[in-house]
Amino acid sequence: MNTADMTAKIAAGHGFIAALDQSGGSTPKALKGYGIEADAYSNDTEMYALIQAMRARIITAPAFGSGKVVAAILFERTMDSEIDGKPTPTVLHDRGVVPFIKIDKGLQDEVNGVQMMKPMPELDALLARAAKLGMFGTKERSVINFANREGIAAIVKQQFEVGQQVLSHGLVPILEPETNIKSAERAQCDEILTDELHKALDAMSGDAKVMLKLSLPAHAGQYDALVAHPRVLKVVALSGGYNRHDACAELAKNKGMIASFSRALLEDLRFQMTDAEFDAALAEAIDEIYAASTVKSADAA
């Protein structure tokens, strides 16, 4: 796929994005969910080999190449790895799946109700390597815990600054200012974030587009105007702690949004499954998430 093909596929949104980007801190939890306990590995090398094997099993499964998964977000190590002797990004291209890479290095401590991204001093080198490997875009995450406008404005400012750096390398950024769905101020956070995102989008120079990865909103239709904004290629939703059934039910209420799920996609997969069992469980998850991404409920705003 060339860049124009990948852009068209994402813009059409006829499917969803698989988030396979668990990094160092979240890898043990992801492996445990997959049925591999911490005593199965003794160092980071062994741990990452196990998570790469899990990702390879997912990416090569029949359902993953069904056309219902339009893109996948990878961890840096996964981008640099191979599956059956081929670079992982090439394998995704061959399966018709657009590759993205997670670029953030984790979160800073909370200030003004939000957690900004840690500094990324080697980002330019990573972006150059990603572009050379055929990656289409990037993803960067920060977190909003409380409805503090100063904090949320700072989050959005940082997201767009990094996004412009990504765009300068010919890649498309997914900006992910996640709202904590457990926050007592969740609805107010959504409203302030929507306002600040509109300001930042309206202030963008040139004609480049970004993507937004947002928590499922407290009120359906909250992000309708963002979905329609001319500087937004696509708005995608994170599951944010919902199980798959509940995440899909919420997603189906929001027109124009497609899924970018991680835990909700992987929750039923286990290392101990036979290939047939694994493929069937993955296919069931993909079908449910695809439906919620493409067929919206009568309750959608």
Rank of each mutant, 00 (worst) to 15 (best):
D94N: 13
R186S: 09
N180H: 10
D84T: 02
K182G: 03
V227D: 00
P119V: 07
L107V: 06
A53E: 15
S262C: 12
K182L: 13
G106C: 08
G13T: 13
I258L: 09
R263N: 10
D21L: 02
H245Y: 04
V236H: 04
C189T: 08
A12N: 13
G25C: 11
D84L: 08
L201P: 04
D80A: 13
A298S: 14
Y290N: 11
Y290F: 15
A147H: 03
A249Y: 06
K132L: 05
N148D: 15
K29P: 00
G33L: 08
M79T: 03
R57N: 11
L50F: 01
R55S: 03
P173A: 08
L133Y: 03
S205K: 12
S168A: 15
V114N: 00
K32H: 13
A291M: 11
A154D: 13
Q22N: 14
R57S: 12
A249D: 12
V172E: 01
G163A: 09
V166E: 10
R263Q: 10
L193R: 03
L92Y: 05
V156H: 03
Y242P: 04
G85V: 09
S205V: 11
P119S: 10
L238Q: 02
A252K: 09
L107P: 02
K68Y: 07
R244P: 01
K296H: 15
H93V: 05
V69H: 06
I192G: 02
I144A: 09
M1P: 13
D5A: 14
A292Y: 06
E288G: 01
F160K: 01
P177V: 01
L31V: 10
E37V: 02
I51P: 00
V210E: 00
